[in-house]
Design a protein around this nucleic acid. Structure first.
Length: 317
DNA sequence: CGTTTTTGACCGGCGC
DNA sequence: GCGCCGGTCAAAAACG
């Protein structure tokens, strides 16, 4: 069983059942060694997500990021790193990104995705995130009463970050410990959606995993919230270090490569790390521009390309 | 025995 | 107001 892990970031505008893929990339011809078996083994971790998760817990605002990359919820144009990929997933039209080439890393690809959240404004449907549990103070709940949660403080919508990964395993390792708390059938899809919650106490991060009905080989993972603790697992250090390193290392322009969200996050983090909470209190437009600018300014994911694959597919020497 | 998964029921929002 | 639907709860079962 070879697991291919390729990340395709997509944008999930409404948390609804339908996700708009902003961009996708594809195209990998070689097949990577199975990664599943790799997970946890060796000092490395499959988690390409890792670095990004770290960023998440580092209080990143996905929304900003997303926008930073030019992917506003409404516009579906992002840099396209797509390549002739016969993927069935429908995407809007990528604006064709300006990078002419697609990076194409055999194994990983990418497109960024986005998130919603921030709380800036809700279109209306986004408000259902994290409900205050069963109403309780009021009086009796029907049958199950939950724990008490103040109704008053309704949770803001947590930032969300979704991306697609080409993988055969549904639940991808990302360094954190998750506990499944539910599973529902997905409309128009034969594949169910699983709901996971970070097992660390006090950490309210949730993640949703579902397989694309159009391309069963693709797993759509949606993270919601930010970890307020370090990755329990270990070995994230190496991975993180690598990413960081790659991030810091300039790459030749002209060479456009697949950009991993992690990368962005890593790059952006320093700029927006102050914005904790993702409440979108800050001027997004500014951030947006700022970040965007940053992005254009530092389009170096060069090494990453080399590195990432190894992380995804851990090709053992 | 402690932790995680399974699974049916429930909750709340939304559209009709 | 009703029904649909996504998300969550929680008891029971499964695991290690």
């Amino acid at each position: 069983m070879s697991d291919e892990h390729r990340d395709l970031y997509y944008h999930a505008p409404s948390h609804e059942d339908h996700y708009d893929i902003i961009d996708e990339a594809g195209g990998y011809n070689q097949e990577p060694p199975s990664i599943s078996s790799t997970y946890g083994s060796q000092g490395f971790d499959p988690s390409s997500y890792m670095s990004f998760t770290e960023c998440l817990h580092g209080s990143m605002d996905y929304n900003s990021l997303a926008k930073a990359f030019g992917m506003s919820p409404s516009s579906s144009e992002v840099f396209s790193s797509k390549q002739g990929n016969p993927k069935p997933v429908e995407i809007g039209d990528l604006g064709g990104g300006g990078n002419g080439e697609n990076p194409v890393t055999p194994n990983s690809s990418v497109s960024f995705s986005s998130s919603e959240a921030g709380g800036e404004e809700d279109s209306g449907k986004t408000k259902k995130e994290i409900p205050p549990k069963r109403s309780e103070d009021g009086g009796e709940c029907s049958k199950k009463e939950g724990k008490t949660k103040k109704k008053g403080e309704k949770r803001q919508k947590e930032p969300r970050f979704a991306f697609m990964t080409k993988s055969e395993v549904d639940h991808l390792e990302d360094g954190y410990r998750w506990r499944k708390y539910g599973q529902k059938a997905v409309k128009n899809s034969p594949y169910p959606r699983s709901y996971y919650r970070c097992t660390t106490q006090k950490c309210t991060v949730k993640k949703r995993v579902e397989r694309s009905y159009q391309d069963p080989s693709i797993v759509i993972t949606t993270y919601e919230g930010q970890h307020n603790h370090p990755i329990p697992a270990t070995l994230r250090g190496n991975a993180a270090a690598m990413f960081s390193h790659s991030m810091l290392t300039p790459a030749p322009m002209g060479t456009t490569r697949p950009t991993f969200p992690q990368d962005f996050l890593v790059q952006m983090a320093p700029h927006i790390s102050n914005q904790v909470g993702a409440n979108s209190m800050y001027p997004q437009s500014l951030n947006n521009q700022h970040l965007h600018h940053q992005y254009h300014q530092v389009p170096d994911y060069g090494l990453l390309q080399d590195i990432a694959p190894s992380m995804f597919f851990k090709q053992e020497p």
